[in-house]
Amino acid sequence: MDDLGRALRTWRDRLEPASVGIPHKAPRRAPGLRREEVAVLAGISIEYVVRLEQGRAAKPSAQVCTSLGRALQLSDAEQAHLMRLAGHSADPHRVPRLIPGSVRRLLERLASHPLAVYDATWQLLHWNPLFAATFGDPTTVTEDHRNLLLMHFEGMPNPARFSPEDRAAFEDSLVADLRATTSRYPDDPDVEALITRLRRVPGFRQLWAAASVAEHQSGHKLIEHPEIGPIDLDSDVLTTQGSNLRVVVYTPRPGTDARDKLDFLAAMGTQRMASDRSQGL
Rank of each mutant, 00 (worst) to 15 (best):
M1D: 15
M1E: 07
D3S: 14
G5Q: 05
L8W: 07
R9V: 10
R12S: 03
D13N: 09
R14Y: 11
P17C: 02
S19P: 15
S19Q: 09
P23M: 06
P27F: 14
P27A: 10
A30E: 12
A30Q: 07
A30L: 11
R34L: 08
V38G: 00
V40R: 07
L41M: 03
L41G: 01
E47G: 12
Y48A: 09
L52C: 07
R56L: 06
V64S: 01
V64E: 03
T66A: 01
G69T: 11
R70H: 05
L72Q: 02
L72A: 02
Q73K: 10
Q73Y: 07
S75V: 05
D76M: 05
D76G: 14
E78G: 07
Q79C: 09
L82G: 06
L85S: 06
A90C: 13
A90E: 15
P92T: 06
P92K: 03
R94F: 02
V95C: 02
V95K: 00
P96F: 01
R97P: 12
L98V: 15
L98N: 14
E108K: 04
P114M: 03
P114V: 07
P114F: 03
A116D: 15
W122A: 00
Q123A: 01
H126E: 09
W127S: 01
W127Y: 09
L130I: 08
L130E: 02
F131W: 10
F131Y: 10
T134S: 03
G136S: 06
D137P: 12
T140A: 14
V141A: 09
R146K: 04
R146T: 04
R146S: 02
N147C: 05
F153I: 06
E154N: 08
E154W: 12
M156I: 08
P157Q: 12
N158P: 07
P159V: 15
P159S: 14
P159R: 15
F162P: 08
S163H: 07
E165V: 10
E165H: 07
D166K: 06
E171N: 12
D172F: 06
V175M: 03
A176M: 05
D177A: 03
T182F: 02
S183P: 15
R184I: 02
Y185Q: 04
Y185F: 13
P186Q: 09
E192S: 14
I195Y: 00
L198K: 00
L198F: 02
R199M: 04
P202E: 08
G203S: 12
R205C: 06
Q206G: 13
W208R: 01
A209G: 14
V213A: 13
V213C: 13
A214S: 13
E215V: 15
Q217V: 14
G219R: 12
I223P: 04
H225T: 08
E227P: 15
E227R: 11
I228T: 04
G229I: 04
P230E: 07
I231K: 00
I231G: 02
D232T: 13
L233P: 14
V237G: 12
L238Y: 14
T240N: 02
T240V: 06
Q241M: 10
Q241A: 15
L245H: 02
V249D: 05
G255P: 09
D257C: 02
D260H: 12
K261C: 01
K261I: 04
L262K: 01
D263A: 11
D263P: 14
F264Q: 04
A267N: 08
M268F: 13
Q271M: 04
Q271V: 10
Q271C: 15
R277D: 06
L281S: 14
L281C: 11
